[in-house]
C-alpha cells in the first residue's frame, strides 16, 4: 500500500503546481483590484461586456448545432461502411487535423476574403459576390470546420460500439428500419452525442484565434475579450481573471447539465462510453 501511495506523489505535486496554484491565482486576481485589495467590482463591470457574452454563446450554440446536424449523419454513414471505407473516412477526417490549426484557419481567410477563392469562383460563374469575411458567419464557418471532427468521432465511436445483434433483435421484435434507428440506435448513441456536443461547444465558446482571423475584430468573442485584458491595450489582469472565472463556472454548469440529460436518458444503467 505504501509504495502505491508513494507512486502517486509526483502526480499530486504536478496537480498542485500546475492546477491548484494557478487556479488560486485566478481566484485571487478576480476578487482583487490593481492595488491588491478585495473587491467585487470586476464582476460588476463585466456587465458592460454582456453583449460579448451573448454573441459568444449564440455563435458557439449555432456552430455546435451545425456540427451536430452535419456530424451525426456523417458518423452514422461511416459506421455503416465496410472496414476499408471506415479507414478511408477516418483518414479524411484526421489528416486535416494534423495540419496546424492556424494554417487551417488562414486557409479559410484566403477562401472567404473579398478577393478570395470563393468570390473568384462566384464571379467566374457570373454569380453575385459574397461578403462573408469579418462577419460572425465567417467565424461560424471556421468553428464548424475546425471542430466538426470532435463531433463526428465520439458519435461514431458510440455508434460503432452498438452490437449488431441489438439491431437484429430490434428487427426481430418488429421494428421497421426507421424504428430500429429511433428505438435502439439513437438512444444508444446519446452518450457519444453528448461528448461530441461538449467537445465542440467548449472550444467554440472560448476561441479567440478564429474570431480574430476570420472575424477581423468586427465581432469580439469572450476569448478575444480575455486576451485583450492580458495582452491588449486595455491591460486589466483582474478583469481578465474574473471573466475567466465566470466562463469556467458557465462551462462547468453546461457540462453538468448535458451529462445529466445523458444519465436520465440512460435510466441509470451502467452504460459508459
Amino acid at each position: 500500500m505504501k509504495t502505491t501511495k508513494a507512486a502517486a506523489y509526483p502526480y499530486v505535486l504536478w496537480l498542485i503546481l500546475f492546477t491548484a496554484i494557478p487556479m488560486l491565482i485566478v481566484f485571487y486576481y478576480a476578487f482583487t483590484n490593481e492595488a491588491g485589495s478585495f473587491t467585487l467590482m470586476n464582476f460588476k463591470d463585466m456587465a458592460d461586456y454582456s453583449i460579448v457574452f451573448f454573441n459568444s454563446f449564440r455563435l458557439a450554440i449555432i456552430s455546435t448545432l451545425i456540427c451536430l446536424v452535419l456530424g451525426y449523419p456523417m458518423a452514422y454513414a461511416m459506421s455503416k461502411l465496410g472496414r476499408r471505407g471506415r479507414t478511408a473516412a477516418m483518414i479524411m477526417i484526421m489528416v486535416p487535423m494534423w495540419m496546424n490549426f492556424l494554417l487551417r484557419t488562414y486557409a479559410w481567410l484566403t477562401i472567404l476574403e473579398n478577393n478570395g477563392l470563393l468570390n473568384a469562383f462566384l464571379s467566374a460563374v457570373h454569380m453575385p459576390e459574397l461578403h462573408i469575411i469579418n462577419t460572425p458567419a465567417a467565424v461560424g464557418i471556421g468553428m464548424v470546420y475546425n471542430y466538426l471532427p470532435f463531433m463526428i468521432l465520439p458519435i461514431y465511436n458510440s455508434l460503432e460500439a452498438i452490437d449488431n445483434s441489438l439491431i437484429e433483435a430490434a428487427r426481430d421484435m418488429g421494428c421497421s428500419s426507421s424504428q430500429v434507428f429511433t428505438k435502439v440506435v439513437l438512444p444508444l448513441s446519446i452518450p457519444g452525442t453528448v461528448s461530441g456536443i461538449i467537445m465542440v461547444f467548449i472550444p467554440a465558446v472560448s476561441t479567440f484565434v478564429i474570431s480574430k482571423i476570420l472575424g477581423g475584430g468586427a465581432s469580439i468573442l469572450i476569448g478575444d475579450l480575455i486576451e485583450m485584458q492580458f495582452l491588449g491595450g486595455t491591460y486589466d489582469a483582474n478583469m481578465g481573471a474574473a471573466i475567466s472565472l465566470v466562463m469556467m463556472v458557465i462551462i462547468t454548469l453546461f457540462t453538468m447539465i448535458t451529462n445529466k440529460i445523458d444519465k436520465d436518458n440512460d435510466e441509470g444503467s451502467v452504460l459508459m462510453s
Binding site: 445483434s165 437484429e168 428487427r171 435502439v184 444508444l188 440512460d266 452504460l271
Partner: peptide, 22 residues
C-alpha cells in the same frame, strides 16, 4: 420477407437485451 414481418422471434446467443431499457 423482412424479419419484422415474420411471426418468428429469436433468442440470441448473447441475449441482445437493450442496454438502455430496463
Amino acid at each position: 420477407v423482412a424479419p419484422n414481418l415474420r411471426n418468428i422471434n429469436t433468442v440470441f446467443q448473447k441475449y441482445a437485451l437493450f442496454p438502455h431499457l430496463n
